[in-house]
Amino acid sequence: MNNTGSITVLQKYKRKQLNQRSQTLMYIASGSIFLLAITVIGTLVGDIAITTNFTQKNFLPHMAHPFGTDWLGRDMLARTLKGMSISIYIGLFASVISAVIAAVLGAAAATLGKKVDAVITWFIDLVMGIPHLLLLILISYALGRGTFGVVVAVAISHWPVLTRIIRGEILQLKEANYIKIAEKLGQSKMKIVVKHMIPHVFPQFLVGLVLLFPHAILHEAALTFLGFGLPPEQPGIGIILSESMKYLSLGMWWLALFPGMVLMTTVLLFDVVGGSLRKMIDPHSAQE
């Protein structure tokens, strides 16, 4: 009765053309290249971004000026790239500071006892409880606005989420059996930190850092747009956008559209890169 020669296929693993992991790597690589390109070109354009040329003002986008020119005849492509690279630098700087704060506070909360933990947790709740933009404006305003004000404001308002993650990871790790066993086998605290803790926490830290970028960039732009950030002579992306508002009613849509799109793209790309990195590191999705 059962002597059918054929065999039933019960499940077929749908292999994609490119396996998932190569795809993720591709995302990371192309995202990083694009962002790096914006930063490098933006840095190199230098004076073009602020050179005025009244014979070429208010041009619609065309071959010579793909993003058009503004009311002073400045090339909008150069301005946008320059502005974006400034935002990326500030974002980078502020997120690194934020991430370092997060690492120190997270580790302290998890290892230095209940009192320290309570204080740090209280601070996390405090900072997270205040509306983000309000906090940014307050800090930046108190520090006299300008580049310094923005960097400090963005840096010291973005650490709580990552701090929580790191604190949680370390707390969980401290309860891991293999760490308790290492203690019983006579391993020193330092060795346990180097051998077990850092290799576990560092990747999470790195992903957290990359995922901070888009926030930092967006908040810097928002702060500047509202007039609490970079000074007007810097072609920050927030400045470009707020200036272009005045000309929108005159029908000069390209002044806001292209810089806005570049900002969006940059922020989304950082998010994709960070998300992909997390996917590769996270053991739950690593096998997909």
Binding site: N2, I7, T8, V9, L10, Q11, K12, Y13, K14, E288
Partner: peptide
């Protein structure tokens, strides 16, 4: 029929 996604299965049941 509740195997994880990343596997192939064959056989007669």
């Amino acid at each position: 029929g509740i195997l994880p996604q990343n596997c192939d299965a064959e056989g007669n049941i």
